[in-house]
């Protein structure tokens, strides 16, 4: 399993792929950061990293399908899925190795953004506790998105379609709150409550405000596990119905 993990990581870092995405990610981070500094005025020089995290996610979430689109679709397309499936590894191990590899890339990407708080800390004060909280939330929500992206990749043979499906899923994920708060669902409080249970945005908001709740952490982790479980089921299903 470790071999597969290593191979996956290599495929990201031995191609321009991870670097391009990381660069784009840093750009996305840089703009609100510069904006935050540019907007400083008055006597109190303050801006919030938590806010940056919160705002960034709405752009960042659309980068994740680009990371995950190849995980299974590419294997199927190039015929290498046979190699993995006829090796002694089981589907759980394959999914886990791939998930860990993407998560590692993601972790490296967010580690790079430490660059901005460090610069700030050189000349000012950074609230470390709220920063850690923001990062934790960012990471956990990212894991959920990665598991969804992998599920989408397991549906198809084409990485492009996998990416588009992934983007679709991300949009739904983002708009759950809007749907919940819409007039229609406000008139149906019970339905709104049910939809609200799936809302990730609210939970992420807690993190970005510096509140690390056990419930929120468990929510993100179970959501990740659930989507990875669906991925395993989807791959097994494909084996049975291949024609």
């Amino acid at each position: 399993m470790f071999s597969l993990y290593k191979k996956e990581l290599r495929s990201y870092f031995f191609s321009p792929f991870a670097y391009v995405i990381a660069a784009l990610f840093l750009l996305i981070f840089a703009i609100p950061f510069i904006n935050g500094i540019a907007n400083l005025s008055g006597t109190e020089y303050k801006f919030s990293f938590s806010n940056i995290f919160y705002n960034n996610f709405f752009y960042f979430i659309f980068l994740i399908p680009a990371l995950t689109m190849r995980t299974f679709a590419d294997e199927r397309k190039s015929g290498t899925e046979v190699l993995l499936m006829t090796s002694p590894l089981n589907v759980f191990q394959i999914v886990a190795a791939k998930f860990l590899a993407v998560s590692t890339v993601f972790l490296m990407m967010i580690a790079l953004t430490n660059f901005y708080p460090i610069i700030t800390a050189m000349t000012g004060d950074v609230m470390i506790s709220s920063l850690i909280c923001g990062y934790t939330g960012f990471f956990l929500w990212g894991l959920v998105c990665i598991s969804i992206g992998m599920l989408m990749s397991s549906f198809t043979e084409s990485p492009i379609i996998a990416a588009i499906l992934g983007e679709g899923a991300m949009i739904i994920l983002l708009f759950i709150d809007n749907i919940k708060n819409s007039g229609l669902f406000q008139s149906l409080p019970k339905a709104a409550k049910i939809i609200g249970a799936f809302s990730t945005e609210e939970r992420f908001e807690n993190f970005s405000q510096g509140i690390m709740g056990l419930g929120d952490i468990i929510f993100f982790i179970t959501a990740t596990i659930m989507f990875l479980g669906f991925t395993i089921i989807s791959i097994e299903k494909k084996r049975w119905s291949r024609g």
Partner: peptide, 29 residues
């Protein structure tokens, strides 16, 4: 599966890997 070596109709190779690297990876899995 440990007892079987399989060469499918389309060789299951990763085109973005080098030959030796690929074989080491296969040995690993």
């Amino acid at each position: 599966k440990r007892m079987i070596g399989y060469l499918p109709e389309i060789p299951p190779v990763y085109v973005d890997m080098k030959v030796k690297e690929y074989l080491l990876f296969c040995a690993g899995i």
